[in-house]
């Protein structure tokens, strides 16, 4: 517990967390506006419009269900929110090497696995704070948007609350991924650039590749896109099962798998490595 408190104190006593928070806020506002616009477009769409094949028509119909429009809006900000948490969690580790504080840290606590666990715990707390703030903002603003869309606030739907809860899990798991990534890429700048590039480009690139290749190779290939971490975390927070997609729990399992791998590998490497 002392160690987790110390890690949280480390975060609190530098500027990084609130600078990242300031970056996250406009990004959250942007995604909320985009989701508003796309919900409005979706609700205005006619599933029986010519030009859509049967699958696409079905997907459009389900996505336009009130509960799915609502969950999408109530979890606004996840795409960039988890990216910010990922970077902050990586910096929790890379800071120690960038500022050469790793020496002091491991002198105070020679059991290095305890240090990594404390960093994981502190980063998860940080991730949940980001989740909490965006969720409270969403709960305040989204009912207004839903009313404007004539959908109703939907807060009586268990699916909405489940999505909000799974969104918290997503923030926590991305924090774990960040700590693991920070151990693997010790350079502060290297980690920040690599992770944000891989996250954004990887997401767009994977989405494009799957969109292009799935019709040629088959639906089973399309289901593999759940292996791409940002797609997995988006799948987790869908309101209901979406046709043409793997079930939600698969998204959670994939993300937990990555988190365990990153956390475990990070701990193991930290234990072996010489601190010079």
């Amino acid at each position: 517990m002392n160690l987790v408190r110390a890690e949280l104190l480390k975060i609190r006593t530098t500027n990084t967390w609130w600078i990242f928070g300031l970056i996250a806020l406009p990004l959250w506002a942007l995604t909320l506006l985009v989701n508003w616009a796309s919900s409005s477009a979706l609700l205005g769409m006619d599933p029986n419009e010519p030009g859509l094949d049967a699958d696409q028509a079905e997907q459009t119909r389900v996505a336009a269900e009130a509960v799915n429009v609502a969950t999408n809006l109530y979890t606004s900000g996840q795409f960039f929110g988890v990216l910010v948490v990922l970077l902050l969690a990586a910096i929790v580790v890379t800071n120690e090497f960038f500022h050469q504080t790793a020496t002091t840290t491991f002198l105070v606590t020679p059991r290095r696995e305890a240090v990594v666990l404390a960093k994981l715990a502190a980063s998860v707390v940080l991730g949940l704070i980001f989740w909490l703030v965006t969720t409270l903002l969403n709960l305040a603003l989204v009912p207004l948007i839903l009313n404007a869309l004539d959908v109703g606030v939907q807060l009586g739907e268990p699916a909405v609350w489940r999505a909000i809860g799974l969104n918290a899990l997503a923030y926590a798991l991305w924090a774990v991924l960040g700590v693991g990534a920070g151990v693997l890429i010790r350079s502060q700048i290297g980690a920040t650039i690599t992770l944000s590039t891989v996250y954004v480009i990887g997401f767009l690139g994977a989405a494009t590749v799957f969109a292009l290749l799935t019709p040629r190779i088959g639906d089973w290939f399309g289901n593999l896109q759940v292996l791409v971490p940002p797609l997995a975390s988006q799948l987790m927070i869908a309101g209901t099962e979406l046709p043409g997609n793997p079930p939600r729990w698969v998204g959670a399992v994939v993300l937990i798998g990555y988190a365990l791998l990153a956390g475990g590998l990070g701990t193991w490497i930290t234990k072996k490595r010489d601190i010079t």
């Binding site: 002392n2 160690l3 408190r5 110390a6 104190l9 480390k10 006593t13 530098t14 500027n15 990084t16 800071n95 500022h99 050469q100 504080t101 020496t103 002091t104 840290t105 105070v108 606590t109």
Partner: peptide, 22 residues
């Protein structure tokens, strides 16, 4: 090492972090 503290952290907070961990 002479330079083993976070550049953006105050001296007293550097020591408080260590106190907290220990």
């Amino acid at each position: 090492e002479a330079s083993s503290a976070h550049k953006g952290r105050s001296g007293i907070n550097h020591l408080r972090v260590i106190c907290s961990a220990a």
